[in-house]
Amino acid sequence: MNTGSDKRHVTTVTTTRKRTLKQKLIWLGDHFRNEWQIYLMLLPTIIWMILFLYKPMYGLQIAFKDYSIFRGVANSPWAGLEHFETLFTNDQFIRAFWNTIKISFLNLLFGFPAPIILALMFNEVMNATYKKTAQTIVYLPHFISSVIIAGIVITAFSPSVGIVNTVLGWLGIDSIYFLTKPEWFRPIFVGTGIWQEAGFGSIVFLAAIAGVSPSLYESAVVDGASRWQMMWKITLPSILPTILIMLIIRIGNVMEVSFELIILLYQPATYETADVVNTFVYRQGLQSGRYDFAAAAGLFNAVVAFVLVMIANTLSRRYSRTSLW
């Protein structure tokens, strides 16, 4: 027979099992002998990331250099903050920066509530087939490439053939060449974004709604609440944490305007309202070859974006226990 209880009286001698260096090496040897496969599995991705994502970060130094194609990144002479000085006195860049902020803000104001409203509405649809069909259709534009979206927008808003001007014609309004008018660019761009993403964006909120306990609704019904009241008093408060997280993510991504679509839709006549930092970088760097200057603009954009993402993640951690990644 073995009595264990008396051991508890021996006030626990702090049993720190510190390994000696030799033991550690033996342990590491065992570890890699047994587990080398998982390191092998990770290796290709690590190499890839160094080659395609971290090496360009090293290449960012050209933002502080007089970059010459022939000398390469490392050997080009330093230029200090020259490019940034040029940048911050460049009207086009400043305009592009504010355009980025403005377009993002409009996206936030109109594009953010859209999927929430859509999800709340889907939740009220009773007929399952109708709901499923509608969902299938509204998710679809998310999977369509920006080139096609641009093609559709260009065709639909065309002054001669476009359906929009055709309808305006019925109402007796002269046709407008929308895509050449700076004042129309942002509404069209933001509207297109809602059309393309509101449906897909609603998935997250629908999942949150699905997680609400049915007994909450049942007890509300017993209390005599209407569907309208339940939407406001139960559904919306229940998905508020999700809304908050998605909002924080959106704020973190303010600098990421989908510039692909802008490149496809804008033209010199609408640069005034349409040009954003990334399109500016694209024109200056890839089209005009001012690599160092464009890299400086890109770096500025990336740093602002990074700070915003970090703030967003901190906020998300504080408010929701969940980190975004």
Partner: peptide, 13 residues
């Protein structure tokens, strides 16, 4: 995911 070198360094790379 949080920090991207951007178009130009990627292109030059």
């Amino acid at each position: 995911m949080w920090f991207n070198a951007g178009l130009i360094p990627f292109y030059l790379n």
